Amino acid sequence: NITNLCPFDEVFNATRFASVYAWNRKRISNCVADYSVLYNFAPFFAFKCYGVSPTKLNDLCFTNVYADSFVIRGNEVSQIAPGQTGNIADYNYKLPDDFTGCVIAWNSNKLDSKVGGNYNYLYRLFRKSNLKPFERDISTEIYQAGNKPCNGVAGFNCYFPLRSYGFRPTYGVGHQPYRVVVLSFELLHAPATVCGPKKST
C-alpha cells in the first residue's frame, strides 16, 4: 500500500531547467500520482495528452512514469508532439509516433530571460542525422557541412553544433522561453508502482 505522493513538484518547480539538447529525465516510481494538482495549476500554456485522457489519469496505474524537462522557445512547443519535424524534434528531443503521455508547457519569461540576454539555454542546430525517439545527444563535436574534414576547428563550413537562445524579456511570445515537462507513461508486464489516488488503496 503506497502512500507517499509522487515528487512532481520537484520537477515542475525546479529552480533551473535543462537546455533542450541535454534534456533532463527523472524516473518516478513507487508513489501516488495526483495529476489533478498539475491539471489545476493555472499558468499552463499547453497540457496535451496522447493515448490517454488527462482527466482519467487519476484512475490509472503505470509501471513507471518518466518526467523529461527542458526549455525551448514558445514557437517550438508545437514540435513536442508525435510525428513532428523541425530543429527541436529532429536534433534535440524526439517523441515516438506511438507516444503515451502528456506534454505540459508554460511561459517562463520572468524566470529564464535576462536584460542583455540569458545565454545559458542551448539547443542543437546541426546534426548529421535525426534523433531516434528519446535519444539524447550531448556531443559538442564540430559539425562538418562541406567535404573538408574540420579536425575539431570551427570555421568555413565547420560549425559548433550548439546555439544559444539568448532570451531577453522584451522578445515577442514566440521567442520567449517556455518550460516543458513531458510525462511518459510506461506500461510493462510488471507490477504497477505509480497509481492515481483512487487506485492506491
Rank of each mutant, 00 (worst) to 15 (best):
I2T: 14
Y21G: 02
D68H: 05
P177H: 01
T100P: 01
F8V: 05
I80Y: 00
C150I: 01
V103P: 00
S53V: 11
N4G: 12
P96S: 07
E135M: 08
R27P: 08
D68R: 03
R73D: 08
Y66S: 08
L187T: 15
S164F: 05
T85Q: 12
L95K: 02
A67Y: 05
I138K: 11
V11Y: 06
G174V: 05
E76A: 08
E10D: 10
W106T: 06
S53I: 10
G51I: 04
P7C: 10
N109I: 06
I72S: 02
I88L: 05
A190M: 12
T100S: 08
R16K: 15
S113Q: 02
Y93T: 00
N87G: 10
C61F: 07
R179L: 00
F17R: 04
S184F: 08
F47D: 03
N109Y: 05
P96D: 06
L125H: 05
G174N: 08
V52I: 13
Y35K: 09
D90S: 12
S29T: 14
G146T: 04
F167T: 00
Y165A: 04
T193K: 13
R25G: 00
R179P: 00
A81S: 08
N87H: 15
Y178P: 00
N40P: 09
R25E: 01
I88A: 04
T85H: 15
S19A: 06
F41G: 10
V71E: 00
C61T: 11
Q144N: 15
R25D: 00
T170F: 04
V194L: 11
C31Y: 06
A81T: 06
P161W: 04
E186P: 09
L38F: 09
G101N: 00
L95F: 03
F45N: 15
N40K: 15
Y119K: 08
V20P: 07
N87Q: 12
E10N: 08
A18K: 07
V77Q: 05
N24G: 08
Y91L: 07
I2L: 14
K148G: 09
A89P: 07
S184N: 11
N157S: 02
V32Q: 10
S200R: 13
N130V: 15
V180Y: 01
Y143M: 06
N40E: 14
D9E: 14
A67I: 11
Y66K: 06
A192Q: 12
Y178I: 13
A67T: 06
V71S: 02
V11N: 03
Y93A: 01
T55Y: 13
Y91N: 08
N64I: 08
Y121M: 09
R16L: 09
K48A: 07
V32W: 11
Q84A: 15
N13P: 03
N157F: 02
Y21M: 07
V153A: 15
A145Y: 02
V181G: 01
F45W: 15
G166F: 03
R168P: 00
Y178G: 01
N118W: 04
W106V: 09
N13M: 09
N130M: 12
P197S: 15
F126A: 04
S184I: 09
I80T: 02
D97R: 11
T55S: 14
Q79F: 03
L95S: 01
Y66H: 08
D97Y: 09
A192C: 11
R136F: 05
S53E: 15
S164T: 09
S164Y: 05
L162T: 06
N157Y: 02
H189D: 15
G174M: 11
T15E: 13
D98I: 08
T85C: 08
F12D: 01
G101Y: 02
N118I: 04
N157C: 02
N151C: 09
L188V: 13
F12Q: 04
C195G: 11
N118H: 06
W106L: 08
F12H: 03
L187F: 11
L125I: 07
N75C: 07
V20E: 00
D90H: 09
R27M: 10
A46W: 12
Y143F: 13
G116A: 12
G51Y: 05
N30Q: 08
Y165F: 08
N4E: 14
Y93G: 00
T3F: 09
P82W: 02
G51C: 04
L183K: 01
F134V: 05
H189N: 15
E135G: 09
K48Q: 10
L95D: 00
A89D: 00
G166Q: 07
I72V: 15
N64Q: 12
I138A: 11
P82R: 04
D68E: 03
K48V: 07
A42C: 06
H175S: 04
G86W: 03
N157H: 02
N64A: 15
V194T: 12
P54V: 14
C31F: 07
F41P: 09
N157T: 01
G74F: 03
A81K: 08
N75G: 15
Y165Q: 03
K128R: 13
Y159G: 00
V181M: 06
V194Q: 12
Q79A: 06
C102A: 03
R163K: 15
V65K: 04
R136S: 07
R124N: 00
P82M: 03
A89R: 04
W106R: 07
S129E: 14
I104F: 15
T3Q: 11
S113W: 02
P149K: 10
F12A: 06
G196V: 11
C150K: 02
F45S: 15
I138R: 10
D137G: 02
T3H: 11
E135H: 09
P133F: 07
V71D: 00
V194I: 11
N151S: 12
R163H: 15
Y66V: 12
S69M: 07
L122P: 00
S139P: 01
E76F: 03
C31R: 07
S36C: 05
P177E: 00
L131K: 02
T63I: 09
F167R: 02
R16Q: 13
G196M: 10
L38V: 12
Y93D: 00
G83F: 10
Y93L: 02
F41Q: 13
H189K: 14
F44E: 13
L38T: 05
L5D: 12
P43E: 09
G86D: 01
L38G: 04
G152A: 11
R127K: 08
K128S: 14
Y121T: 05
Y91M: 08
F156Q: 06
V115T: 11
G117E: 02
F156S: 06
T170P: 03
S53G: 09
S53T: 13
F12M: 12
D34I: 05
T201M: 13
G86N: 03
C61D: 10
P43V: 06
G116T: 10
N120Q: 13
W23I: 02
E135A: 09
N75W: 15
V65I: 14
I88H: 02
